[in-house]
């Protein structure tokens, strides 16, 4: 039961991350390495604010803003300075590492004695029977709101343009819009979500660690692919729902593997191998081929 609960909780936290990466990886077709640093950026901002005694709820919008700025930076480097997509993400990722250290003040910050969105007077006032489920309820609420807002956004004119930019930049120009600006906008939204996920993670585990961002992109991409490939048959599911479910399924698989005796040492190796298998078998590359048909 405890295992299930923690899988659900972590899956939901990473679902917000996966929603962000879905925008860059799937919609924009942009391998955005920024996320490896914008995830801990959200956590660093959160650690700073929580220590300063600022209301935990405020950390959510502020860390989103910080992430959005990181995304804009990557976008501007790519679009305006014409640096390759992967490289511009790596440049920002590397630079943000120092920024994160400055923001948090140290490589490790513990927040056990502070109030968070999961630990405050309001939650302590809940009946004892509900309290263990409070985190999962809060997380579900945040994730569902993020998902609904994203669905709504993708149906707007601006959202249509975002989808068109990844699909066919030529068409965006024919519609008299600058595809570069749309890319920058998409990167900022994506990294805002990634940072939000980092912010929640930081409050959930009640500490900030500078290395918590390592492998974020791979983890998110795995969730996106598990969701969109594995649940491909269920046509009634929206892509965003599939991504959320994918994140939970992925976390469940990892937890199960660890429970069955997989050494944490091998976790990344297994993840990488599994990702490769899913991409090849699932035929993620097909999208590109189809586009030129």
């Amino acid at each position: 039961m405890n295992l299930l609960l923690s899988v659900l909780e972590q899956g939901l936290i990473y679902a917000v991350l996966a929603l962000g990466v879905y925008i860059t990886f799937r919609i924009l077709d942009f391998p955005d390495m920024t996320v490896d640093s914008s995830f801990p950026l959200g956590a660093a901002v959160t650690a700073l604010m929580i220590q300063a005694g600022i209301a935990p709820l405020l950390t959510l919008p502020v860390s989103m803003l910080a992430g959005a700025l990181a995304g804009v930076l990557t976008g501007v480097i790519h679009v305006k300075l014409k640096v390759r997509d992967l490289l511009s993400g790596i440049i920002v990722m590397t630079g943000l590492y120092s920024v994160n250290l400055h923001v948090a003040g140290r490589a490790n910050v513990q927040l056990f004695s502070f109030n968070t969105i999961f630990k405050n007077d309001m939650i302590s006032a809940l009946p004892a029977g509900i309290q263990p489920y409070a985190p999962v309820i809060i997380l579900a609420l945040i994730t569902i709101i993020a998902k609904i807002l994203m669905d709504a956004y993708l149906a707007t004119r601006s959202g249509f343009l975002l989808r068109a930019t990844g699909d066919n930049p030529t068409l965006v120009a024919t519609l008299a819009k600058d595809a570069g600006m749309v890319k920058i906008l998409g990167l900022s939204i994506a990294n805002a979500l990634v940072s939000l996920s980092g912010c929640i993670m930081c409050q959930y585990q009640r500490y900030f660690d500078i290395s918590m961002g390592t492998g974020t992109l791979v983890l998110a991409v795995a969730s996106v692919i598990v969701g969109t490939q594995l649940l491909r048959g269920l046509r009634f599911l929206r892509a965003t729902t599939a991504v959320v479910l994918g994140s939970i399924i992925y976390k469940g698989c990892v937890a199960l593997a660890l429970d069955m005796g997989l050494s944490p040492f091998d976790l990344k190796l297994v993840t990488a191998a599994l990702l490769l298998v899913i991409i090849v078998v699932g035929g993620h590359n097909r999208k590109k081929v189809k586009r030129h048909a």
Binding site: A155, T156, R157, F160, A176, R291
Partner: peptide, 28 residues
Amino acid sequence: RGTCPSMTILENMSMADNKGKPFNLMPC
């Protein structure tokens, strides 16, 4: 090059119809 493959006919037409107008947060 003139259409978006992963969007429906209706979505493509709606988007084209919005050319020259702002691509804002109104439903497309």
